[in-house]
Amino acid sequence: MSTVVAKDRPRAAVHKFASCDGCQLAFLNLGEDLLLLSSLVEFVHFAEAGLVNPEAPVDIAFVEGSIGTIRDVERIQRVRARSRYLVAIGACATAGGLQALRNLADGQAWIADVYASPGYVESLETSTAVAQHVKVDLELWGCPVNSRQLIAAVRALLFGVVPLEEHDKVCMECKRAQVVCVMVAQGLPCMGPVTRTGCGALCPSFGRDCYACYGPAENPNTEALGRRLEGLGIAPAAIGRRFLAINNGAPPFTEAGLRRVHGHD
């Protein structure tokens, strides 16, 4: 394998906002390819890997996490200003993450319930996607994103082409893997028909229903799926909560979920 370090490598940074750090592992889990990757791009800031230089200008900035504090709001502007190409990675960065559930509730009350000294917690009322604050050039969806997605994006950018967006439904991947449909054959409340592919139909491959961690696919018919789930005997509020999960902040899921949780059309 060639690990000759290219001259004038593009510079890259991995920034973290409100998140569990799991998406950054898609870089660290590359194994041998991580050496190859770092011969192709120079990581100048990647705290989880021990490189700390957050203010350095870069060609590619990967942003993990949602915007959840007033400092985040200011910091994402600095990241944008110092980056040629900004890639939002993972459900937090693309849809506000699980923590966006506070957008639909009284977040301050939750903080008071949970923390012994809530005064130390300074958070905004909302957790929002990076694209709601700055221009995002590419979104990689998933909770978490995987190494294949990151490699495909980096490779396309190194070629100087726009990375392909994967937005087919999970069903397409499921059928290509010849997995028997868990909704039709088992009556499981699968979210695959409205969910973006990218995971390789991981959950249905193991006999369980998709829970939409890659966010909405293009042209998602959330209303028809919701009616079908009702037909499987699932209560409307429970259907709503399936939409209001990891990607609750993605507009098609927010709308479909609220409609059923609150029972109004």
Partner: peptide
């Protein structure tokens, strides 16, 4: 179109 999920299951099977 109001009922169809446009999921591609029909064409795949």
């Amino acid at each position: 179109a109001g009922r169809c999920l446009a999921c591609g299951n029909c064409t795949s099977v």
